[in-house]
Nucleic acid binder design. Structure first.
Lengths: 139, 139
DNA sequence: CTTGACCCTCTAGCGACTAGAGGGTGCATA
DNA sequence: TATGCACCCTCTAGTCGCTAGAGGGTCAAG
């Protein structure tokens, strides 16, 4: 088992960019690791586990603040995980809303696009639809 | 017909914030209007039309750059509006992709949430699922 | 003449990175 | 041993589309 990792190895192992790892350290999401003689960051297995958790949570769309909360909760081993459930459900609801918004948008755009007769700008239905009250060109 | 508008009136008429209008001017999206004796911006009907166009496009999710392109195209009255169609369809496709991504995400989250037995953190399925390889707490 | 709503410019902040300048380190190879 | 190259370091600024605030000036009503 390789326990010590450079930032590049950690990046490779977790599919994160080096700059992003440094950024997570800067905002206090990932604890600062020990440094080598040449001032290189030296990561341990624990960092790998934490960063993997962060990556997976971010991939699932949780915000940085939510990830922070989730990690804080995870460290309280004996407490109820209801709070975790709450965060996950809030996030799920936010996504449901976003899908609804985008679906409505898509429908509006479809109406717009269907109306295009592919003639000149002057009688373009798309541009007309975008102008709520007869758009006049400059000059 | 009221032809002259202060920035506040224009904001009210278009449902845009005053700061946003100034921002649009700054980035060259909305042309800078004439100034009054007291250095107030003085908008005309043309500004109202352009800003309405911008608002509507933005509400439909077009990026600032896309709006810029659309407005540029709209001013070429005699040319084909095929280019407009292309932009609209690109945008429509981007939204389709976003909806697909979010739907996949929602499904993953649902699996996660269903697995929660609402016990302690130590055996929380959500946290387990987030840790791709047994998450160990700090300390 | 004062109050208060409006307007002005300029700057910094949001979230979550990303990119670049300008340098130092570490290791393999000629 | 020199050199080349990949990797690492810090610091700063940029991305997108606004939003918010400081610190002022203008204008119309009472």
């Amino acid at each position: 088992m390789s326990e010590k990792l450079t930032i590049g190895k950690l990046a490779l192992a977790t599919g994160t960019k080096v700059e992003t790892i440094r950024y997570y350290e800067q905002i206090g999401l990932l604890p600062a690791p020990a440094r080598s003689a040449g001032n290189y960051r030296t990561y341990e297995g624990e960092h790998l586990r934490r960063l993997s958790f962060i990556r997976r949570s971010r991939d699932l769309g949780f915000s940085i603040d939510q990830v922070r909360e989730l990690m804080g909760l995870a460290d309280r081993r004996e407490q109820s995980c209801m709070a975790v459930d709450v965060i996950a459900k809030q996030h799920r609801n936010a996504i449901t809303r976003k899908i609804a918004d985008l679906t409505a948008l898509a429908a509006e755009l479809d109406t717009l696009i269907d109306s295009c007769s592919r003639n000149t700008m002057a009688d373009c239905r798309i541009l007309e639809a975008l102008a709520p009250g007869a758009f006049e060109p400059a000059a």
